[in-house]
């Protein structure tokens, strides 16, 4: 399957950036820079063998024609460096920086100052659990925690977050080791299409530590920054109520 994918999208991979820089020239996949950046994070060996394949890379490939022809998300312009620990790049103006996400340091090179935290998480670091909805702070799909507090990652530039502890849905729990709030959302059917769910859960986990009242009405107000187009609100409130009561 991976082979046929490679063949099918070979025409896209022949596009090379107009101005390759040293960093890219040193990269094995220089000609595939744009494409490579949309691959999930895997080791260099796997990339070389061309064996990496995921739903996201497939969907990205389908959209790659327009992506290459037009405006790519700002954060998708340069390759990502694998997580490293203990190393902090000097920030001069904006370009290189280290973000600490879910307890790991990610070093980023040539980051456009216009890149939001949301686009950086999704397009540079491939932490795609955080969703882009309205991109204007109105829907809450992009909710992450910064230093333990929930924020809209679409309304914040990534360059402003060096030194911050960032937590995304990937850092809250994983399959087989769900956070109590994730398990409660499953139990109560707190979603339908699921697109807003990671933002809902990030808000719900954050409100456990906020000084809000005990009633369902308080939960509704505290969750009002997260819009659910499917209308799963009743079940979302039930999930949050259960976790709050179990921790009371």
């Amino acid at each position: 399957m991976a082979d046929s994918f490679d063949v099918r999208f070979k025409h896209l991979r022949s596009h090379s950036p107009s101005k390759p820089n040293d960093e890219v020239a040193n990269c094995d996949q220089a000609a595939d820079r744009q494409f490579l950046d949309l691959e999930p994070l895997t080791g260099p060996e796997e990339h070389r063998k061309g064996s990496s394949f995921s739903r996201r890379s497939f969907l990205s490939g389908l959209g790659a024609t327009s992506l290459l022809a037009g405006a790519a998300p700002l954060a998708a312009a340069a390759p990502v460096i694998e997580p490293e620990t203990g190393e902090t790049a000097a920030v001069d103006g904006a370009s290189d920086l280290t973000l600490r996400i879910n307890g790991k340091d990610y070093r980023l090179r040539d980051l456009d100052p216009r890149a939001t935290l949301l686009d950086t998480l999704r397009e540079r670091l491939h932490l795609t659990g955080t969703k882009k909805g309205c991109d204007h702070g109105q829907c809450g799909a992009c909710t992450v925690h910064v230093n333990g507090r929930r924020v809209n990652s679409c309304l914040s530039f990534a360059v402003m977050h060096e030194g911050d502890e960032i937590t995304t849905i990937e850092g809250i729990g994983q399959p087989g080791n769900l956070h109590a709030m994730q398990a409660a959302f499953v139990e109560h059917d707190g979603y339908q299409c699921g697109y807003c769910t990671s933002g809902q859960i990030m808000s719900a986990v954050a409100l456990l530590k906020e000084p809000i009242g005990p009633a369902d009405e308080d939960i509704k107000h505290a969750m009002s920054g997260n819009i659910c187009r499917c209308g799963a609100y009743t079940n979302i409130v039930a999930a949050v109520r259960q976790v709050r009561q179990s921790r009371a």
Binding site: T143, R150, L155, S203, A206, L207, G225
Partner: peptide
């Protein structure tokens, strides 16, 4: 005003 996320920012 706004939402809890926005008020945190």
């Amino acid at each position: 005003g706004a939402s809890p996320q926005l008020r945190n920012m």
